[in-house]
Design a protein around this nucleic acid. Sequence first.
RNA 1: GCCUCAGUAGCUCAGUCGGUUAGAGCGGCGGACUGUUAAUCCGUAGGUCGAAGGUUCGAGCCCUUCCUGAGGCGCCA
Length: 503
Amino acid sequence: MTLGRQGSDAGKSPKAYLCARKPRKRMILRQEIAPLLKNPPVGTTVTVMGWVRAWRGNRFMVLNDGSGPETLQVVVDADQFPEEIIRSIGFHACVGATGTLAESQGSGQTVELIASSIQIFGKADLSKYPLQAKAQSMEFLRENAQFRMRTNTFSAVFRIRHAVAYAINKYFHDRGFYYLHTPIITGNDAEGAGEMFRVTTLDPINPPLDEAGKVDYREDFFGKATNLTVSGQLQAEIGALALGKVYTFGPTFRAENSNTSRHLAEFWMIEPEIAFADIENDMDLAEDFVKYLINFCLDNYLPDLEFLDERIQQAEKNLKAELRRPMGLIEMLRFVVQGDFERITYTEAVELILASTPYKKKKFQFPVAWGSDLQAEHERWLVEQHFKKPVIVRNYPKDIKAFYMRLNDDGKTVAAMDILFPYIGEVIGGSQREEREEVLRARMQEMGVHEEELAWYLQLRTFGGAPHAGFGLGFERIVLFITGMGNIRDVIPFPRAPKTADF
RNA sequence: GCCUCAGUAGCUCAGUCGGUUAGAGCGGCGGACUGUUAAUCCGUAGGUCGAAGGUUCGAGCCCUUCCUGAGGCGCCA
């Protein structure tokens, strides 16, 4: 039995993963299909276990066990097995098969398993089972999330999701960062990143009231009003100003009524925070980091990416040429990691948009002016039409950015940066943090952030402060980009969004 | 939260100008076949047309409200 496959663990002896004791008699022993097919031991007896992807001609059973996108065709001589066994084989039934691995007589695969014994683990009654052996809509599969990982598309998506998560931890670990767990329940109401979910144990029908007749949170579990976190950044800064380089990687919650294919109410976010760093260091780290994640998937999960690439091309075959993606998935991923991201200032971005053809032809719906935020249509023009590659925009007007971002010498802009990707828009938002106590205090006042709530945050500047910077990467957004999926709800196993909390 | 589109069989969809008994492909079920590649062939069952209300002699189709989904926008990662 082997764990791990194309990753850095591949090639190690399978024994390394088993405990030292000898296999017991009743222990289930199987070989996983993806590693088996890398170097197929033709002529030997093997046992595989998985779910039936296709059952053709009462003779050919195609198995997949999730170890990769690869399938193994099992040849079943119906006369050699009881009818009950044969009748139990069907789409997405769970089956084990033992037999001899042989060169395939057919043309769709190189090897196949000639079954000598078959074990039915779980039948799937096709008159009731919702999925079919054909292309199904993403929406339908989302409603049947208990089964969707058995499909080619979603098993590939979730293997890639794993790969990205692993690569994140590996990247930071290899570079001396420490993984910091910031709180999921927070008493800060000043994180400044949108609407929050209230966490309470008070009776919602009959809550305790204070003298003013308002809900008395002094009687709540934590003795104060608490919420689910919208960001671990402020706490990560504590870590950076002690451990030097830290990152967080955990769930984040935003109670915004966002109905788009790029937003979730519960998503995972990576927030590195580094001491002794300015906005330039921050951009260098962010660019190197996302390129690493993409390269890791290209190097270790290419079969899954190839499947997803093929799937997108099939889906877009019937679209008009101008609606199709200009590049295939893998082609685009290679393109992104090969070149430098374009780096421009907000001011330059505004100038470029004002000089653009769509602006002159009044194709943009929203006005463009220095001081207002770039609209999605402007960002898309910059990334997809003008530069045709990822773009980092930095030095935004201070009035449209958060209080903790470092004020530039011009007094008008802050050292903030957004990385914009084709198709998915903003994938990273970051900044150099304001380390000058008096400037920070003034900014908090300006933005209406109460000092007393963030006294500890200000103290990081009073005592042993340092220039520092960091950014937030939306985990599902980068998975969305790497898999080429169209909706962020399809790259998280159990999506949470407005009116959506099934499973 | 806003705009647009959609909701008809298990799935994907067609349904003309409001008119008799609502259709197809796939899937299911029954059978045939057995070196297939989403196998193929024959047969067959399956619908409260998203919900409620309204207009009309008559509504899948028109009107109102609501629910759900998709795409776009805003908020952001």
